[in-house]
Design a protein around this nucleic acid. Structure first.
Lengths: 249, 249
DNA sequence: CCAAAAGTGTTCTTCGTACACCCATGT
DNA sequence: ACATGGGTGTACGAAGAACACTTTTGG
């Protein structure tokens, strides 16, 4: 079945099941090789990269919808998503389905709700859905070089901006790093999100004063030079710090 | 024409003009007598208080929609609105139109987008639309005593929370205070938003260091005791401060 | 033993907090 | 003149910024 046939078929079912005009788009961030990456799908149709978004069922809450969509399109489950913006320009998807007539469900005007989340890529196996060729992590530095459908690049930009705001008041890392990690690794994560270098000494002191870390009785061996200490997050204090907030970086 | 007839009539036109399932609700904050207030409408139908929300035309951007809605329902124009949340529970308006059958446009499931803004009430004359009995500023302290339709109380709560977050990083007051104002007045505004008292001396120093104020060559006469100096905002620096942000209170 | 990275300590400055003091005005 | 609120100054401590120093490891 080619991709156009596939979309037409989906369209018929969609009209029954989903609310018209409303969609949700999750922006999932990951961290690897000291760089941030985003989860994207390359659709069979038109070969453009898109966020793994979808539609809202008539009988489910919006929150439930995003969770389901993400699961169906990528295989990711159990992830905390946070709304960060609504994209409602009337012609935001104008040229995306130009091969189809107006009866296609997917072609109608959509107002989309953006959600973002942080997720550790190692935790699961990506499974693209039937409409997508690939489901891939794409590094932020590569984004300007790939071709997006609709306004999805803009959506990612805003998600990233929101993440930067967030890191200034709440701790980040619990979902992006493995169980055990080193302080230099955590610092690299913060630097990747903020897009600037941080002073080592000051970072160490500040993060330790937050009290969200537990120092383990082991080091990460294997690298050249001094072996760094391993840490894990102190669940209880981490949750407290999430609520209370802090100052800035 | 009674209120039920009115709603039925509106329903017919609405199906032509508006997108289904999507609405926008503006939460407009004002400041008077050292207290915050919110702009609300009391609908003819069912006598519940509601935000002055409405629907999105098929041929307008979402941003345009909120502006138009607010203008039509209250008379307010030229105001900067900022999205703060989406409310999409499937049964959020379940009991609101129970006197009607499912064909009523207004009764369908709506996912609503919340916008908030700050506005100086003195600047305009409130004009309720034809569907509303009154268009009124209601003080925050009175909110628990009035009866809201749907989940609009919850929406206001989140708007207020967002405003508190915002005041911590960006200056506030430009839209909420008259052209000329005194530092004690500004401080009262901050205290009202934050819900706690601030130290006078520290507030003065901090706000002055922001450089967003212009001291005028006059005082506010008439009150008892010492006449306080009048200030106005320095447009240029205010806008800068809006962009740059600052620390916390 | 040395280079390089990890971890700690020191100093300076900035900024928030608390509070004291002076100033101006209407009663 | 004096009580009251407006405006300014000061002293202390916490926290950020910059940087020096020590420690540990692999080569």
């Amino acid at each position: 079945m080619d991709s156009k046939q596939q979309l037409l078929q989906q369209s018929i079912a969609a009209k029954e099941i989903f609310l018209p005009h409303i969609s949700a788009d999750p922006v999932i961030f990951g961290f690897e090789h000291n760089e941030l990456k985003v989860l994207l799908l390359k659709t069979n149709y038109r070969q453009k990269w898109l966020l793994p978004g979808g539609y809202v069922r008539k009988d489910e809450d919006l929150d439930e919808a995003v969770q389901r969509i993400l699961k169906e399109r990528s295989g990711i489950t159990d992830i905390y998503l946070e709304e960060f913006g609504v994209f409602g320009k009337k012609n935001r998807s104008e040229f995306h389905f130009e091969d189809f007539d107006e009866t296609l469900f997917q072609k109608q005007r959509f107002i989309t709700v953006g959600y973002y989340a942080l997720y550790s890529p190692s935790k699961f196996h990506l499974i693209p859905d039937e409409f997508s060729e690939t489901c891939e992590w794409v590094f932020l530095s590569k984004l300007p070089q790939i071709e997006f459908g609709m306004d999805h690049y803009e959506i990612i930009q805003k998600a990233l901006f929101t993440l930067r705001q967030k890191i200034s008041t709440k701790p980040i890392g619990r979902n992006l790093l493995p169980e055990k990690f080193t302080l230099p690794e955590l610092q690299k994560l913060y630097e990747a999100v903020l897009g600037k270098e941080l002073n080592r000494g000051n970072f160490y002191r500040k993060i330790k004063n937050l009290g969200i870390l537990k120092k383990l009785e082991e080091q990460r061996r294997g690298g050249a030079h001094k072996a760094p200490d391993l840490y894990s997050f102190d669940e209880e204090n981490y949750i407290k710090a999430m609520k209370n907030g802090m100052n800035s970086w």
